[in-house]
Design a protein around this nucleic acid. Structure first.
Lengths: 339, 339
DNA sequence: TACAAATTTGCATACGTTTGCAAAGTCGGA
DNA sequence: TCCGACTTTGCAAACGTATGCAAATTTGTA
């Protein structure tokens, strides 16, 4: 009957060895004879012993805990990423300590302090930007940070994003090839690299076709803002016949609003999103969107982070992963379209 | 310039007091003179000292970490709950360590072991059932557990759910009053208390009106299963004119499928869900559904859990929270309907 | 068989806190 | 002014593990 609080001492006593021996048996790198390993394992099994990760963390300085800072979970993309990240890290013996935050900069300061208190081995920020000052703090404390789905100008931190510039350009090509005349953009939050890059790629892309967006509005990655923006666009003298929306979450709001106005999609107007969250494939929206390959992004995030944890001399890297445009029913498809 | 790894020793040295004094200043209950408090705070500020929670956890046995076990994050209800839980717990100085699991029982065993390794102060399981054996293990280890959105027959554990029986009954009343003739139920997973209770409440409710469900199919809280179930239902000789679906997540699938079949909602058939996730309010679905008051459920969860943590003698309690039926456009509304 | 090299083992210490205990200090009232 | 009651303080021992070091044991080689 395995009971509470059994320590390496107890195991040592039962196995007739020293506490150090027990420790060594449970420490991957350490040396112990086959005989000791056997005795100790047997005793440990019998008592139901498992090493205390907290005590271990104290002495090694490694907690095997990764801090995850996340802002909003209402955009389906993030829970999905969280789930995948947790699975991948669990498989490697790490766990995720969650910190939620409204996207206020001052708040992040506090949160990073708390993270450092817990001696997390690494930090993943999802949809959250880090000030340069904060970057510096983490670097000095030797805690690797990976920004997930957000970039940063300085070379200080690792980041994993999709190829937002290329993605924006692809959408531009697609909409231009579709023969749309007035193409508007409800952009992702201008305060985020992700939002800016998609917008820039999009405008660049249009320019190549001699076009320019009929309007660009900051949607702030927010549903209500996107709804208001859509209303404004459609109220104008020359409403758009296509809208590229900065992410799927807003695109759904846009589609709801357009239908509210009695418009047909894509008959009257095309809508293209960004992310390809599962909901985009559901019948009610059937949204044409540029996929962010969440699996590969998660994989890259974990690899980079663990790499930096295991080898502190490793340099931060900025990883961009390209995703395809997923053709569905919310936007007119050009004849002979090839991506 | 606050730097890495400053300990209470360093602060003590600078402040000219003993290390214990520093500890006492940072320990809420302890006694220290105003003069010491001042000296220590000043020194701590200057060095950028913050107590190490791991060391604290070692000695007190309290980690201020709550383990959260969660199965699937694709049903919007759970990320939302997670976010709220995290916020509420953070406000109380606790943090969430996430454990994801496919819903396999054997897996849960391992996960609970890991949780106990980390000496979590409490456990919240969301949409996950606990075996009686496991319940026993936690009880013996003195770790309080609250099951969120899932109940259990034995009296061993606390649980917080909505009033699923009453909810199911309310939906039955509503659909019966709407004059529907053949009412089917695509139920939540029969392996979950939540799914069973809603189904039972629903059948009881119909019985009161002298009705019986035209069909009951286990949808397993799964989108694909729900789609298949819907197809089966509509393929039958006497297809239903109303479907009560065990949760919103499946209800969306049902609506997509019905529309695919060219049916009009609620003209040809009414659909009612359960949860009232944000998506239910969006234009594309506009789903009539029974609300699970997530805020109050989270509040109750946190209160119960922290209560048990702070007072170990407290008994587990089973809390049920009633929610209203939210009337929207997916189901015919009876004249003069009052809940 | 003997001896050097390599491996295994135990001892003791460290990690950064909290806390029981006893000594020292503070305060008020007679 | 003196004494008891109460508060504050420092000392030292925990908490459960990892690890450097030196002693002990095993292994390999001539």
């Amino acid at each position: 009957m395995p009971d509470t609080r059994v320590t390496s001492q107890d195991v040592a006593r039962l196995a007739g060895v020293s506490q150090s021996a027990v420790s060594r048996v449970f420490t991957p790198g350490a040396s112990a004879s086959a005989a000791t390993v056997d005795k100790v394992k047997r005793a440990a099994e019998q008592l139901g012993y498992r090493p205390n990760p907290l005590a271990r963390a104290m002495i090694t300085g490694k907690s095997r805990i990764i801090g995850l800072v996340v802002a909003y979970l209402d955009n389906q993309f993030y829970p999905l990423a969280l789930e995948r990240l947790s699975n991948a890290l669990q498989a490697k013996g790490y766990h995720i300590l969650v910190f939620t935050t409204p996207n206020r900069a001052d708040n992040i300061d506090k949160i990073v302090s708390e993270l450092m208190d817990y001696r997390v081995d690494g930090i993943i920020t999802a949809s959250v930007a880090m000030s340069n000052e904060l970057t510096e703090t983490c670097a000095r404390a030797g805690i690797p940070v990976v920004m997930f789905n957000r970039g940063q100008d300085g070379a200080g931190l690792s980041s994993v994003t999709s190829a937002n510039l290329i993605g924006g350009r692809t959408v531009a090509d697609f909409l231009a090839a579709g023969g749309h005349q007035r193409i508007a953009h409800i952009a992702g939050w201008a305060g985020s690299s992700t939002g800016r890059d998609r917008a820039r790629g999009f405008e660049d892309g249009l320019a190549r076709h001699g076009l320019t967006p009929s309007a660009v509005i900051d949607g702030r990655f927010d549903r209500d803002t996107a709804i208001a923006a859509t209303r404004d666009l459609m109220d104008s003298e020359t409403p758009p016949d296509a809208i590229f929306v900065g992410n799927d979450h807003m695109a759904f709001a846009v589609m709801d609003t357009l239908r509210d106005l009695g418009l047909s999609i894509p008959g009257d107007i095309s809508v293209v999103g960004y992310d390809d969250v599962p909901l985009a494939a559901w019948g009610a929206y059937d949204l044409t969107t540029l996929r962010q390959p969440v699996n590969r992004m998660v994989e890259a995030t974990v690899t980079t982070l663990l790499g930096q944890i295991e080898d502190a001399s490793k340099h931060p890297e900025k990883i961009e992963i390209e995703g395809p445009l997923i053709l569905r029913g919310s936007a007119r498809i050009p004849k002979d379209w090839t991506p």
